[in-house]
Each structure stands twice: as C-alpha cells, then as structure tokens.
C-alpha cells in the first residue's frame, strides 16, 4: 500500500480513482428515472423487446383470425384461399406456414403439410417450443409420431425414390427440433 502512495503523483491518481469510482456509484444510485429520453430507451431494451414480441403475437393473431375461424368451421379450402390472400401482403410469415401445414394435413396432403411445418419452424423456432403463444409442439409431435414410421418404411422399400427421401429428411428435421437443444 505504501508503495502505491509514495509520492504526490501516486496520491493524485489514487484521489482521481476514488473520486470517479464514488461519483459513478453515486450517479447510479441517485439517478432514478433521470437521464435523457434516448438513454432511458437504451436502458429499457428488455422492455422494448418484450413489448415488440407481445405486439407481434397480437398482430399475427388478428391477421390470421379469419383463417382460423374458417378452419374451425370446417371450410378448409376457403381458409387456404384466405391464407393466399394474406400471403400476397405478408409473404414468408412463419405463422401462415404452420396454419397451412395444419389445414393441409386435415386434407390428407401429408407431404406438403410436412414441408409447410418445416418452413414455418425454420423461419421461427417459436413454433417448435413446448410452450409459448405460437407453440405448435403438440401438433408437430403428433405429425412426426404418426408419419415417421410409415415414411421410413416406404423409403426403405423404395430406396431410389428421391421424393420419399425428401419427406423423410423433413420429418427428421422436425423430430430434431422437437427434441430441443441449442439452435
């Protein structure tokens, strides 16, 4: 310690160190809601992020409500056409792919349903989460559990069929995403 305070140079620097450290601590402790608007917004990035996410959930649910209503009433083809209309304005939205996958599955278009689920999950991993506003984990799990054995068998008996291989790869992708892990 003595070595650090051996002359005026040392004492001056220790003084600056103490003053700046204490000053910074005091500012942090007393600042409260102070500071300019830009700084406040930076400090609230978590809030901004969470608000944007909630807004996205609400927006997408509103946007796709007519499709979901049609699907619920059994008007599946009409729901698919409505999806086309929405797709003209918002192409490449993952939620649309998930809904389309579900409707196509109901219409027995299994290969295309799988491809749509894959597209949706690739665009947004939220759909493969077990929980959350957009979780489609259960329906994807049911799809994989039901279709994987049959497509594995078909691919085994038709080893040169590239289309079956493609569906099988898609099912394995979904299976892997359902299993979790880091992305």
């Amino acid at each position: 310690m003595n070595r650090l305070l051996q002359d005026r140079f040392d004492r001056w620097h220790v003084l600056v160190l103490l003053l700046t450290t204490l000053g910074a601590a005091a500012l942090l402790l007393t600042a409260g809601g102070g500071g300019d608007a830009a700084a406040r917004s930076e400090l609230n990035r978590q809030l901004e992020q969470d608000v944007a996410y909630r807004a996205r959930i609400d927006f997408l649910q509103d946007l796709y409500r007519p499709v979901l209503d049609l699907e619920k009433s059994g008007a599946r083809q009409q729901a698919l056409l409505k999806l086309e209309e929405i797709g003209r304005r918002y192409p490449g939205e993952g939620y649309g792919f998930i809904i389309k996958g579900r409707i196509l599955l109901q219409l027995d278009a299994v290969e295309e349903a799988v491809a749509n689920y894959v597209e949706g999950v690739r665009l947004n991993g939220d759909f493969a989460d077990r929980q959350g506003a957009f979780s489609a984990w259960n329906e994807i799990d049911q799809l994989v559990s039901k279709q994987l054995p049959s497509f594995s068998e078909r691919a085994r008996t038709h080893p040169d069929n590239a289309s079956l291989k493609r569906v099988l790869n898609n099912l394995h992708y979904l299976q892997s995403r359902l299993a979790g892990g880091c992305e």
Binding site: Q77, Q78, L80, L81, E84, E85, G87, R88, D108
Partner: peptide, 27 residues
C-alpha cells in the same frame, strides 16, 4: 379446380370471400 381458385386468388383476380366452396374432392 382447387388450383385455379388458388392461382386466381393469389393473382388478385378473385377474393376468397366471393365464393362458397360447396364441396371438395379428396386430393
């Protein structure tokens, strides 16, 4: 054909709300 309805909707020639789909065949 379901495909023509889809293509015409995508191209904006018709709207999904214009028609009633009375029945649809298996694929």
């Amino acid at each position: 054909p379901a495909l023509d309805l889809e293509v015409m909707t995508r191209e904006g020639k018709i709207s999904a709300d214009d028609f009633q789909i009375v029945a649809q065949s298996p694929i």
